[in-house]
Amino acid sequence: MHTTGLAEIVRPRDLAEAVRLAAEGGEPLAGGTDLFVRLRKGVERPPFLVYIGDLPELRRISVGESKVEIGAAATHAEILASPAAARLPILRLALEAIASPAIRAMGTLGGNLANASPAGDGLIPLYLLGARVNLVGPDGERALAVEEFVLGPGKTALRPGEVIRSLDLPFPEGAPRAYFRKVGRRRALIIAIASLGALLWLRDGTIERARLALGSVAPTVVRPREVEQALVGRPLAPDALADLVEALSAATRPISDLRASAGYRRTVAGRLLLDLACTISPGG
């Protein structure tokens, strides 16, 4: 097992230099909470690392009229402490479920996205809010919808030399209710077996609009749009949603691994809909 001799870490002066170093083959390093695990396992051996974790332009969190912009190197803890989390309850719920206080103090939302794990808790709110990913690379800037950015487990649309600059999280219209639940064997420092996040727009106890995002049950986070549609017009009560459990399960493409079997993941993903109905009270 390769345990010693981690790659050299280079500190760029600014974002432009970071992009140049990334184009030379350097792997961007922010919080390192995922990257160092992979480096220590020896599954990835970049020639050198580019530390972007303290570039001021990547750490800004700004709350605008219509959206929140979060710098790629802002840590989960910083985001949770910022007005952005207060304005976006779904973001707060998901980020609070990440790992442990120590990991949240180091890990970044940009890194969580770049890691592109289907189990990434931070990705759920990005999918639900329709976040855009602002990229900067040797050929200039571009922006992608999060669903275009994540291509598969550990796979993204990042081109060589491209770095995530920031994430735009648009405010949803109205005041949807937020739900996030992750299922794992224990509470802290756990990778989800399955997770469900939701935004629900309610009127008089009836669902007017719904967005759902499932984690850990497919190669990427999944938006089950048919179920979202089917929820419209239904009362928010377990009995009224029971017949959609199967449909939600059917939206998954899970694998079996050490943590759980595919069958369990499929079952539980569907049943989280009932947990959602019990957790969100239609009134308040």
Binding site: S100, R186, A188, I190, L258
Partner: peptide, 16 residues
């Protein structure tokens, strides 16, 4: 043994 690490073999952590 396929889970010989704290990554895959979980014990109660302080938060649990």
């Amino acid at each position: 043994c396929v889970n010989p690490s704290f990554f895959d073999y979980k014990i109660p952590s302080a938060l649990d």
